[in-house]
Each structure stands twice: as C-alpha cells, then as structure tokens.
Write a protein that binds this DNA or RNA. Structure first.
Lengths: 110, 110
DNA sequence: TATACATATGAATTTTTATTCATGTAAACG
DNA sequence: CGTTTACATGAATAAAAATTCATATGTATA
C-alpha cells in the first residue's frame, strides 16, 4: 500500500460511513439536483443536507455548480460507482442473500 | 444502485472508517499474523486489536484460522485491494500532492 | 488436570460524529 | 435597494463509536 494512503482512506471511508451522505450520493447518482430537492426527496431538513454535502464536496465525492439562484450538486460518478461496485462485488460473493450476514445491526436511519 | 446496497455500503464503510482497523488491514495485506503480532507491530493493546478485528471478520474483510494455540488473521485481499485501489485512483486524480486537499483534519492516530 | 499462553468479551468511560435549531449570507428580481 | 428564495454556518445537544481495563474463555502441554 502506498504511503499516506491509510490517512486518505480514513477520511474517505469516514465520509462514506453515514446513511445520509450515502443516500445523498445515491440520489445524485440518479441525477444532479439542488439542496432543497435532496431534502425533499430524502425527507430531511435542508440544513442537514447542507451539512452533509460539505464533506462530500471537500473530498470531491460530489461537485457543485451554481445555476441561477439554485446550487446544483452532482456525484463524482467515476469514484462513487467504482466504490459501490467494489462493495457490490464483495456482497455478492461474501454476503449471500443480501447481506443477511450483517443482520442484527440496523442502520441509524431507514 | 441495487436495492439494499446502501445499507451494506453503510456497514462496510463504517467498518473501514477507523484508523486502527485500516492499519490492521494494511498489516494483514502484507502478511497474515496473530493478534499479538498485530498488537506489537501497531503498538496497541491486544484487546483493542481483538475488538477491532471482530467487525472486520463479520463483514468478511478479514478471515481467521486457528493454528495451534494462536489464531492467524488474514485480509480479504480481493476486496481490500479493490477498495484501496479505488481510493488511490481517486486520490491521484482529485487530491494532488497526497491528499493535501484534505488537510486540516488529522487522523485520530498517526 | 494445573498452568501458561493466546485471544475474546463486558462494561465503563472517553472521544467522535450527527442532528437540530436559530440565524447568517448571497444571488435574483420586483 | 428591499424582499424573497436558496443555501450555508455555528453552536448546543444528542447519539454513536472507540478505547481501556478487568476478566473470562479456550487450547496446548508439562
């Protein structure tokens, strides 16, 4: 493993280890949208979405662009799809029947 | 994104979002070893290593096998290398000069 | 089978992270 | 330029994780 990667990995995975941020990324993978659109879709407060978008932007897992009075967020499709795919591959191989091996502990939300 | 994957991703990334566990995985990628060997190498208490190995095993990010009175742990090389590679790719492209873009927040250890 | 070695577990505490609520700021548009 | 819309930020609180220390369990072997 490359030196310094551990620290980057830590920030990275810490960033992803959150149901709200994962849900945001999932939505943004479907299509780019505004903070309020995300908040509405996910049934969460606008400020919570904003707070959670920040670390995603910082790590460049998401991008943003102003469009008129809105600000449109989009996912870093390359990285995000690669990561999700890695997890999906693992799950298929090691967590048959949809991660039932992880049963018992539920996600903080939904 | 496949349904149910969000939850698996959450457990997954939560598992990886920890400096001790990342360090453990890094060592185990070099070669399989016992709990005490890990503890010695990482300068951590044995119980801490044990506690942190548990979730890695649960998610099958690591495996274990008894060898005499020791228990030898090994990394799931396939998954771990894929994940690390994904992060490395991202870092190269989006975090030039070794993740300096992530500066300011240090890892809990290291 | 008593002892030592290797690891696991439990529970209390500390640390980190998330969430909420109130408020601040910035662009658009009348 | 004041008002509305859209979003960001700060600070307090709440929730979740990590760490530590004490102790239990399990295996080999004298």
């Amino acid at each position: 493993m490359k030196k310094g990667l551990t620290e980057i990995c830590y920030k990275f995975f810490t960033n992803l280890a959150n149901p709200t941020r994962l849900a945001v990324l999932e939505k943004l993978m479907e299509n780019p949208m505004s903070v309020n659109a995300l908040a509405a879709l996910l049934g969460q407060e606008q400020s919570m979405i904003s707070h959670n978008l920040k670390p995603l932007l910082r790590c460049k897992l998401a991008f943003s662009e102003r469009q008129g009075k809105k600000r449109v967020y989009s996912a870093n499709r390359e990285t995000v799809s690669m990561l999700f795919k890695a997890v999906e591959n693992h799950a298929e191989k090691y967590c048959p029947s949809g991660g039932r091996c992880l049963k018992g502990e539920k996600m903080k939300n939904g």
